[in-house]
Design a protein around this nucleic acid. Sequence first.
DNA 1: TGAAATCAGACTATTTCAGTCCTATTTCCT
DNA 2: AGGAAATAGGACTGAAATAGTCTGATTTCA
Lengths: 133, 133
Amino acid sequence: MLRLSKRVEYGLMALQYLAKSGGVATAREISDAGQIPYELLAKVMQSLKHEGIIDSYQGVRGGYALLFSPESINLARVVRALDEHTTITECISPSGDHDACQMLHTCTIKAPMNKLQQRMEESIGSMTIAELL
Amino acid sequence: MLRLSKRVEYGLMALQYLAKSGGVATAREISDAGQIPYELLAKVMQSLKHEGIIDSYQGVRGGYALLFSPESINLARVVRALDEHTTITECISPSGDHDACQMLHTCTIKAPMNKLQQRMEESIGSMTIAELL
DNA sequence: TGAAATCAGACTATTTCAGTCCTATTTCCT
DNA sequence: AGGAAATAGGACTGAAATAGTCTGATTTCA
């Protein structure tokens, strides 16, 4: 359960790479350096862009670069960008939309799960890309 | 990624039930109360027994009961009992068996992932069954 | 104008997970 | 003694999530 998806793994490696290089790097370059499947990495980079973590430049001299300093990009944000469900259970939705839970009437652990969810996010959010360097 | 498996969800509900009842309860009883698929719950209970969290009694007046007070059963232990991989990535194995990582030479985020793993476990481990009551 | 890059969607394959089924064993009660 | 009710455990199926691939379009620079 606690396993990070490959998308997140690859995303972290890519962000680390960008932070180290300090400038613009292409998906191909990062893929080669980390032995990451190119097409998959390309998707990951697009997601990171949509989340506003990195910027992209098209064309032959294009590539990707960080939009913020490594210290100000925390891992919770990265996970949010790259994973579908960021909640511990389906009961818990970030917007407080509790109708999503199908066991609403029988679920007896919703409140504590919310607490746990919060603590987990704190754990992940307390770490930044700077700590990957 | 951060989603708890059904096994863990059901396990927590069952442990909560046992803590509340204070005594012995059957899988059927717990399954009915929580609308949990009986066969699946039965498997979960077996796993919890193997981990040494609960005790079981066979036969017609049998059932399950907690082996410890709710305060002394933390959720990290429950997760460990009910989930296959308790590590954030395959690089990280609890026993320090780093050979499991197939990207050993190219993986550049192992050390920080270990740190994250530790923090996550602390989060989960800081909560006990008592907090589900 | 061509090469190298991002962008985007559809698709396939694999693995994981939830759930079911079947049988054996134990234990209590009549 | 025997039946009912419970745990124990293995094998199996189906569905869903994930990883990875393929194809084509667009942008930009030299």
